[in-house]
């Protein structure tokens, strides 16, 4: 396992997560991430050969229900919390 996360990697992951960082934050986050990731490596001491992962603790999977049409929120309600809207649509920034 690699020992250090670089400033460039932090920039790249922040971009993947769609979060802009200031120059100062890039520096602080890189230092903090290295300490935290070092601590995370502690789990390598545990022998997990042939141990399956636990994604969640319940013994249930694929919960299904009848595919019935229910009530939906009216358009005005749905748009109420939108910071920008126009003609009954959410207004997004330019995509293409």
């Amino acid at each position: 396992m690699k020992n250090q996360i670089t400033r460039e990697e932090v920039e790249n992951i922040a971009w993947l997560a769609h979060i802009e960082l200031t120059e100062e934050e890039k520096k602080i986050f890189t230092e903090q991430f290295n300490k935290i990731l070092d601590f995370f490596k502690k789990i390598n001491e545990v022998d997990t050969e042939h141990v399956p992962p636990t994604y969640h603790v319940l013994d249930i999977s694929n919960v299904e229900r009848q595919d019935e049409v229910g009530e939906s929120l009216p358009q005005t309600e749905t748009l109420k919390n939108a910071p920008k809207k126009e003609d009954g649509f959410f207004k997004s920034p330019r995509i293409v």
Partner: peptide, 9 residues
Amino acid sequence: LKALKVRTV
């Protein structure tokens, strides 16, 4: 994935 296995342990 490793963390999820530790969770099982």
